[in-house]
Amino acid sequence: MTSIDDIEEPNGPSRSGIARALAVIDTVARAPHAQGVSVIARETGLPKAVAHRILRELVAGNFLAFDEDTKVYRMGPGALTIGLAAMRELDIPTIAHRHLVALSEETGQTATLSLRQGWSRVYVDQVLSRQEIRMSVALGTSHPLHAGSSSKAVLAALPDSEVQDYIEHHRLDSVTDATITSAATLREEISVIRAAGYAVSVGERQAEAASVAAALHGPIGQVVGSVSVCGTRGMFRESTSHELGERVARAAARISADLGAVRDTTGERKDVTP
Protein backbone atom coordinates (compact mmCIF):
# COMPACT_ATOMS: atom_id res chain seq x y z
CA MET A 1 0.00 0.00 0.00
CA THR A 2 1.28 3.47 -0.87
CA SER A 3 1.95 5.53 2.24
CA ILE A 4 1.57 9.25 2.63
CA ASP A 5 5.33 9.67 2.70
CA ASP A 6 5.64 7.92 -0.70
CA ILE A 7 3.35 10.40 -2.46
CA GLU A 8 5.17 12.89 -4.68
CA GLU A 9 3.95 16.22 -5.96
CA PRO A 10 4.69 16.69 -9.65
CA ASN A 11 4.79 20.48 -9.53
CA GLY A 12 6.14 23.04 -7.09
CA PRO A 13 8.20 22.57 -3.95
CA SER A 14 7.77 19.22 -2.24
CA ARG A 15 6.18 19.03 1.19
CA SER A 16 6.64 16.22 3.66
CA GLY A 17 3.96 13.56 3.83
CA ILE A 18 2.97 14.73 7.30
CA ALA A 19 2.66 18.34 6.13
CA ARG A 20 0.42 17.29 3.23
CA ALA A 21 -1.75 15.15 5.49
CA LEU A 22 -2.08 17.97 8.01
CA ALA A 23 -3.07 20.38 5.22
CA VAL A 24 -5.84 17.99 4.18
CA ILE A 25 -7.04 17.50 7.76
CA ASP A 26 -7.04 21.25 8.37
CA THR A 27 -9.08 21.88 5.23
CA VAL A 28 -11.71 19.30 6.17
CA ALA A 29 -11.85 20.53 9.77
CA ARG A 30 -12.32 24.19 8.82
CA ALA A 31 -14.91 23.64 6.11
CA PRO A 32 -18.50 24.45 7.18
CA HIS A 33 -19.72 21.32 5.38
CA ALA A 34 -18.31 17.99 4.25
CA GLN A 35 -16.16 18.39 1.11
CA GLY A 36 -15.38 16.36 -1.99
CA VAL A 37 -11.89 15.54 -3.19
CA SER A 38 -11.88 18.28 -5.87
CA VAL A 39 -12.55 21.04 -3.35
CA ILE A 40 -10.02 19.62 -0.89
CA ALA A 41 -7.37 19.42 -3.62
CA ARG A 42 -8.02 23.01 -4.66
CA GLU A 43 -7.94 24.33 -1.09
CA THR A 44 -4.69 22.53 -0.25
CA GLY A 45 -2.98 23.17 -3.58
CA LEU A 46 -2.40 19.45 -4.04
CA PRO A 47 -2.94 17.51 -7.27
CA LYS A 48 -6.27 15.71 -7.14
CA ALA A 49 -4.64 12.28 -7.28
CA VAL A 50 -2.34 13.14 -4.37
CA ALA A 51 -5.21 14.51 -2.29
CA HIS A 52 -7.27 11.39 -3.04
CA ARG A 53 -4.52 9.05 -1.86
CA ILE A 54 -4.04 11.01 1.36
CA LEU A 55 -7.78 11.02 1.96
CA ARG A 56 -7.96 7.25 1.49
CA GLU A 57 -5.23 6.72 4.09
CA LEU A 58 -6.89 9.04 6.56
CA VAL A 59 -10.21 7.22 6.10
CA ALA A 60 -8.45 3.87 6.57
CA GLY A 61 -7.00 5.22 9.82
CA ASN A 62 -10.47 6.29 10.98
CA PHE A 63 -9.32 9.91 11.11
CA LEU A 64 -11.75 10.94 8.36
CA ALA A 65 -15.09 9.49 7.34
CA PHE A 66 -16.24 9.06 3.72
CA ASP A 67 -19.86 9.08 2.56
CA GLU A 68 -20.21 6.61 -0.31
CA ASP A 69 -23.47 8.18 -1.50
CA THR A 70 -22.44 11.84 -1.62
CA LYS A 71 -18.69 11.25 -2.12
CA VAL A 72 -17.70 13.75 0.54
CA TYR A 73 -15.30 13.65 3.50
CA ARG A 74 -15.82 14.78 7.08
CA MET A 75 -13.95 14.38 10.35
CA GLY A 76 -14.02 10.85 11.75
CA PRO A 77 -14.06 9.32 15.24
CA GLY A 78 -10.27 9.21 15.38
CA ALA A 79 -10.13 12.98 15.04
CA LEU A 80 -12.76 13.34 17.78
CA THR A 81 -10.62 11.35 20.20
CA ILE A 82 -7.63 13.62 19.58
CA GLY A 83 -9.78 16.74 19.69
CA LEU A 84 -11.32 15.83 23.03
CA ALA A 85 -7.87 15.10 24.45
CA ALA A 86 -6.66 18.52 23.27
CA MET A 87 -9.68 20.25 24.81
CA ARG A 88 -9.01 18.58 28.17
CA GLU A 89 -5.54 20.10 28.11
CA LEU A 90 -6.79 23.57 27.13
CA ASP A 91 -5.61 26.10 29.73
CA ILE A 92 -7.28 29.32 28.60
CA PRO A 93 -5.64 31.70 31.12
CA THR A 94 -2.16 30.42 30.28
CA ILE A 95 -2.81 30.63 26.54
CA ALA A 96 -4.31 34.11 26.80
CA HIS A 97 -1.87 35.72 29.23
CA ARG A 98 0.80 36.81 26.74
CA HIS A 99 -1.93 38.46 24.66
CA LEU A 100 -3.14 40.33 27.74
CA VAL A 101 0.39 41.59 28.33
CA ALA A 102 0.66 42.79 24.73
CA LEU A 103 -2.80 44.39 24.84
CA SER A 104 -2.04 46.28 28.05
CA GLU A 105 1.26 47.56 26.66
CA GLU A 106 -0.38 48.50 23.36
CA THR A 107 -3.27 50.44 24.89
CA GLY A 108 -1.74 51.64 28.17
CA GLN A 109 -4.79 50.26 30.01
CA THR A 110 -5.46 47.28 32.28
CA ALA A 111 -6.28 44.15 30.25
CA THR A 112 -8.59 41.50 31.71
CA LEU A 113 -9.69 37.96 30.91
CA SER A 114 -13.12 36.62 31.84
CA LEU A 115 -14.44 33.07 31.40
CA ARG A 116 -18.08 32.21 30.91
CA GLN A 117 -19.71 30.17 33.67
CA GLY A 118 -23.26 29.38 32.66
CA TRP A 119 -25.29 32.59 32.72
CA SER A 120 -22.49 34.64 34.27
CA ARG A 121 -18.82 35.32 33.70
CA VAL A 122 -15.85 35.37 36.07
CA TYR A 123 -12.63 37.42 36.04
CA VAL A 124 -9.70 34.97 35.96
CA ASP A 125 -6.69 37.09 34.96
CA GLN A 126 -5.56 40.68 34.47
CA VAL A 127 -2.47 42.63 33.48
CA LEU A 128 -2.42 45.98 35.24
CA SER A 129 -1.72 49.23 33.43
CA ARG A 130 1.64 50.85 34.13
CA GLN A 131 -0.06 54.20 34.66
CA GLU A 132 -0.08 55.60 38.18
CA ILE A 133 -3.86 55.90 38.08
CA ARG A 134 -5.27 52.63 36.82
CA MET A 135 -8.17 50.22 37.12
CA SER A 136 -7.99 46.74 38.62
CA VAL A 137 -10.59 44.01 38.95
CA ALA A 138 -11.25 41.44 41.68
CA LEU A 139 -10.29 38.05 40.28
CA GLY A 140 -12.75 35.25 40.94
CA THR A 141 -15.78 37.53 41.12
CA SER A 142 -18.89 36.57 39.14
CA HIS A 143 -20.98 39.04 37.12
CA PRO A 144 -24.27 38.78 35.17
CA LEU A 145 -24.18 38.83 31.37
CA HIS A 146 -26.04 42.13 30.91
CA ALA A 147 -23.80 44.44 32.97
CA GLY A 148 -20.47 45.74 31.65
CA SER A 149 -18.58 45.24 28.41
CA SER A 150 -16.97 41.90 29.33
CA SER A 151 -20.41 40.49 30.08
CA LYS A 152 -22.22 42.02 27.10
CA ALA A 153 -19.51 40.79 24.72
CA VAL A 154 -20.17 37.22 25.86
CA LEU A 155 -23.95 37.60 25.65
CA ALA A 156 -23.86 39.15 22.18
CA ALA A 157 -21.70 36.30 20.86
CA LEU A 158 -24.20 33.62 21.94
CA PRO A 159 -26.80 32.20 19.53
CA ASP A 160 -30.12 34.01 19.36
CA SER A 161 -31.90 31.24 21.26
CA GLU A 162 -29.54 31.58 24.24
CA VAL A 163 -29.78 35.37 24.21
CA GLN A 164 -33.56 35.10 24.24
CA ASP A 165 -33.39 32.55 27.06
CA TYR A 166 -31.24 34.90 29.14
CA ILE A 167 -33.51 37.89 28.59
CA GLU A 168 -36.69 35.94 29.32
CA HIS A 169 -35.53 34.05 32.40
CA HIS A 170 -33.08 36.38 34.16
CA ARG A 171 -33.79 39.61 35.96
CA LEU A 172 -31.92 42.51 34.43
CA ASP A 173 -30.97 43.91 37.80
CA SER A 174 -29.30 47.29 38.09
CA VAL A 175 -25.67 47.29 39.22
CA THR A 176 -25.24 51.05 38.73
CA ASP A 177 -27.50 53.79 37.42
CA ALA A 178 -26.07 53.13 33.93
CA THR A 179 -26.75 49.36 33.83
CA ILE A 180 -29.09 48.26 31.04
CA THR A 181 -32.28 46.99 32.71
CA SER A 182 -34.66 47.10 29.73
CA ALA A 183 -35.02 43.98 27.55
CA ALA A 184 -35.66 46.10 24.46
CA THR A 185 -32.59 48.26 25.10
CA LEU A 186 -30.46 45.17 25.72
CA ARG A 187 -31.55 43.67 22.39
CA GLU A 188 -30.62 46.91 20.63
CA GLU A 189 -27.26 46.95 22.41
CA ILE A 190 -26.54 43.37 21.32
CA SER A 191 -27.18 44.32 17.69
CA VAL A 192 -24.74 47.23 18.05
CA ILE A 193 -22.09 44.96 19.59
CA ARG A 194 -22.46 42.36 16.84
CA ALA A 195 -22.10 45.01 14.16
CA ALA A 196 -19.02 46.57 15.78
CA GLY A 197 -17.33 43.35 16.93
CA TYR A 198 -16.83 44.65 20.46
CA ALA A 199 -18.81 45.94 23.45
CA VAL A 200 -18.45 49.29 25.22
CA SER A 201 -19.38 50.09 28.81
CA VAL A 202 -19.29 53.44 30.57
CA GLY A 203 -20.19 53.15 34.22
CA GLU A 204 -22.47 50.11 33.76
CA ARG A 205 -20.78 47.91 36.36
CA GLN A 206 -18.64 50.42 38.24
CA ALA A 207 -19.82 54.01 38.24
CA GLU A 208 -16.44 55.63 37.50
CA ALA A 209 -15.08 52.92 35.17
CA ALA A 210 -15.18 52.39 31.42
CA SER A 211 -14.15 49.45 29.27
CA VAL A 212 -14.31 47.76 25.88
CA ALA A 213 -14.40 43.99 25.39
CA ALA A 214 -14.65 41.27 22.74
CA ALA A 215 -15.72 37.64 22.96
CA LEU A 216 -13.44 34.60 22.91
CA HIS A 217 -14.31 31.40 21.06
CA GLY A 218 -13.11 27.86 21.65
CA PRO A 219 -12.26 24.95 19.33
CA ILE A 220 -15.84 24.14 18.33
CA GLY A 221 -16.95 27.76 18.11
CA GLN A 222 -18.36 27.92 21.63
CA VAL A 223 -18.19 31.22 23.52
CA VAL A 224 -15.67 30.67 26.31
CA GLY A 225 -15.27 34.20 27.67
CA SER A 226 -14.08 37.67 26.80
CA VAL A 227 -11.05 39.94 26.89
CA SER A 228 -11.21 43.63 27.76
CA VAL A 229 -9.28 46.80 28.49
CA CYS A 230 -10.56 49.00 31.28
CA GLY A 231 -9.76 52.32 32.89
CA THR A 232 -11.38 55.31 34.52
CA ARG A 233 -14.14 57.15 32.69
CA GLY A 234 -11.76 60.05 32.18
CA MET A 235 -9.33 57.83 30.28
CA PHE A 236 -12.01 56.66 27.83
CA ARG A 237 -13.24 59.31 25.45
CA GLU A 238 -15.81 58.53 22.76
CA SER A 239 -13.19 59.31 20.10
CA THR A 240 -10.88 56.59 21.43
CA SER A 241 -13.46 53.86 22.11
CA HIS A 242 -13.52 52.74 18.46
CA GLU A 243 -9.74 52.44 18.28
CA LEU A 244 -9.59 50.57 21.58
CA GLY A 245 -12.44 48.34 20.47
CA GLU A 246 -10.64 47.34 17.30
CA ARG A 247 -7.46 46.58 19.24
CA VAL A 248 -9.37 44.43 21.71
CA ALA A 249 -11.23 42.65 18.91
CA ARG A 250 -7.91 41.80 17.23
CA ALA A 251 -6.50 40.50 20.51
CA ALA A 252 -9.62 38.38 21.04
CA ALA A 253 -9.27 36.94 17.54
CA ARG A 254 -5.63 36.03 18.20
CA ILE A 255 -6.49 34.35 21.51
CA SER A 256 -9.39 32.48 19.90
CA ALA A 257 -7.07 31.27 17.14
CA ASP A 258 -4.62 30.00 19.76
CA LEU A 259 -7.53 28.18 21.39
CA GLY A 260 -8.22 26.43 18.09
CA ALA A 261 -11.33 28.36 17.09
CA VAL A 262 -12.42 27.95 13.49
CA ARG A 263 -13.11 31.30 11.85
CA ASP A 264 -16.69 31.84 10.67
CA THR A 265 -16.51 32.16 6.89
CA THR A 266 -20.21 32.77 6.26
CA GLY A 267 -20.00 36.51 6.85
CA GLU A 268 -23.50 36.37 8.34
CA ARG A 269 -24.52 38.09 11.55
CA LYS A 270 -27.33 37.06 13.84
CA ASP A 271 -30.16 39.37 14.82
CA VAL A 272 -32.01 39.19 18.10
CA THR A 273 -35.73 39.03 17.57
CA PRO A 274 -38.02 40.65 20.12
Results as ranks from 00 to 15, higher is better:
Thr141Asn: 10
Leu80Ile: 15
Lys48Gly: 04
Gly118Arg: 02
Ser211Glu: 00
Ser114Asp: 02
Ala153Glu: 08
Ile7His: 03
Gly140Ala: 01
Gln206Asn: 12
Val124Ala: 02
Ala178Lys: 04
His170Val: 00
Val24Ala: 09
Ala31Ser: 13
Gln126Asp: 06
Thr81Lys: 11
Glu162Tyr: 13
Gly148Asn: 08
Ala178His: 02
Glu105Asp: 12
Arg56Thr: 13
Phe236His: 12
Ala214Tyr: 05
Ser191Leu: 11
Asp125His: 11
Phe236Val: 11
Ala199Gly: 00
Gln131Ile: 11
Leu158Gln: 11
Ala214Met: 04
Ala214Ile: 03
Ala96Ile: 14
Thr141Arg: 09
Ala51Cys: 09
Met75Val: 15
His170Pro: 00
Ala86Ser: 13
Met135Asn: 06
Met75Lys: 08
Lys152Met: 12
Arg98Gly: 04
Ala19Tyr: 03
Glu168Asp: 15
Val37Pro: 04
Gly231Trp: 15
Ser191His: 14
Thr141Ser: 13
Leu259Gln: 03
Val223Cys: 09
Gly260Asp: 05
Ile190Met: 08
Ser241Cys: 10
Ala249Asp: 14
Val37Asp: 10
Val50Leu: 05
Val122Lys: 14
Glu68Asp: 08
Asp271Arg: 13
Leu155Asp: 08
Ser228Phe: 05
Ala49Cys: 13
Arg254Gly: 11
Ala196Arg: 08
Gln222Ile: 13
Asp69His: 07
Glu246Trp: 05
Thr240Asn: 11
Ala51Pro: 08
Gly234Ala: 13
Asp177Lys: 11
Ala86Lys: 12
Leu84Trp: 06
Ala196Tyr: 01
Ala214Thr: 06
Arg171Gly: 05
Gly76Ile: 00
Ala29His: 15
Ala86Cys: 09
Val101Ile: 07
Glu238Asp: 10
Ala261Val: 07
Gly197Glu: 10
Leu55Arg: 01
Gly36Glu: 15
Gly118Met: 05
Arg250Cys: 11
Ala60Val: 04
Ser104Phe: 07
Ser14Phe: 01
Arg20Gln: 06
Pro32Arg: 03
Pro47Lys: 02
Val248Asp: 10
Asp264Ile: 00
Ser161Gln: 12
Ser14Arg: 11
Ala199Phe: 06
Pro274Cys: 10
Thr232Pro: 15
Ile220Pro: 05
Trp119Leu: 07
Gly267Tyr: 01
Arg53Phe: 07
Pro10Asn: 11
Ser211His: 05
Ala253Phe: 14
Val202Ile: 10
Ile54Pro: 00
Gly245Asn: 01
Arg121Val: 15
Gln117His: 06
Glu43Gly: 10
Thr2Gly: 02
Asp69Ile: 14
Ala79Gly: 04
Ser129Cys: 10
Val224Phe: 10
Gly118Pro: 07
Ala153Val: 12
Thr112Glu: 13
Gln109Arg: 14
Glu68Pro: 08
Gln35Phe: 02
His99Ser: 06
Ser174Gln: 14
Gln109Glu: 15
Val37Glu: 02
Gln35His: 01
Thr27Ile: 12
Ser228Trp: 03
Thr266Gly: 05
Gly148Ala: 12
Ala183Asn: 12
Arg42Ile: 04
Ser129Trp: 05
Gly118Tyr: 04
Ala86Gly: 09
Val39Gly: 05
Val227Thr: 03
Val124Gly: 02
Val223Gly: 12
His99Met: 04
Leu128Asp: 08
Gly12Ile: 11
Ala249Ser: 14
Val163Thr: 06
Leu22Met: 15
Arg53Ser: 07
Arg134Tyr: 14
